[in-house]
């Protein structure tokens, strides 16, 4: 149990002493999660809107598939992405294995179903009258999309935060696709895995606390934005 306290003290030290290894892992984590969040929101919100807004043949089946993908195991995604990004794989020539964008691609696959499913649910939950109101106030098709999404903004924000939580904390993809390479693709979570493997439990706890601190900062900003929105 002593390593819990040790971890707390160490976490404070790492942050205050500007420990370069720690900051490298923090920076990589931020890069990877920013990239994957940007990509999954950009693709996922319009897809989720389409899925939630329009009625089409096979919609229920698509929903079931998307909802199933919410349970994607990260190690499985990691393996899948590795198979594609490996030099022997179909996208091998792009040289994305063991790179930050490579991890971001894997995490995008992880986050996308969350964003799509929760956005679709949010849009489905909106009052049908909203559509009539927007159209009758003169909205064109794009304004109808943006206006509808803006009405669902709180639910979509919650979707983004859920996806962010999953992306920040996953270790399977980062390990498999990133390779946990020091100064390059070592994220906070793969560093925790490494330190734990090395028996440095205190260090692992310290890194975990730093990850929590980042998540806290993100949620704080979002709740501030939300209050003012």
């Amino acid at each position: 149990m002593s390593f819990l306290l040790e971890g707390l003290i160490k976490a404070i030290h790492l942050l205050l002493d500007m420990d370069p290894e720690t900051y490298s892992a923090v920076w990589t984590t931020l890069q990877v999660s920013s990239g994957s969040m940007a990509a999954s929101l950009l693709a996922g919100i319009p897809l989720g809107f389409f899925l939630g807004y329009h009625d089409f043949r096979g919609k229920r089946q698509v929903r079931i598939v998307v909802d199933t993908l919410l349970a994607l195991p990260t190690v499985f995604v990691g393996l899948l992405v590795y198979a594609f990004l490996s030099r022997q794989g179909p996208l091998g020539s792009m040289g994305l294995l063991f790179t930050v964008p490579g991890i971001a691609i894997g995490q995008t696959i992880l986050a996308l179903p969350i964003v799509v499913a929760l956005t679709a649910t949010a849009v489905e939950g909106l009052d049908r009258q909203l559509q009539f109101t927007l159209v009758s106030l003169g909205a064109d098709r794009l304004q109808l999309l943006t206006g509808t999404l803006w009405e669902a903004r709180f639910a979509i924000l919650a979707a983004a935060l859920t996806a962010y939580g999953r992306v920040m904390t996953e270790v399977g993809i980062s390990m498999m696709v990133g390779g946990n390479i020091k100064w390059h693709t070592r994220t906070i979570t793969t560093a925790i895995a490494l330190e734990t493997g090395k028996g440095q439990f205190g260090m692992g706890i310290a890194l975990g606390l730093i990850l929590l601190a980042i998540a806290f900062a993100v949620n704080l900003s979002v709740s501030f934005l939300r209050k003012r929105a």
Partner: peptide, 10 residues
Amino acid sequence: GLVWAVVTSV
């Protein structure tokens, strides 16, 4: 920050 993070990663 987001743009910076994405650009530097590439």
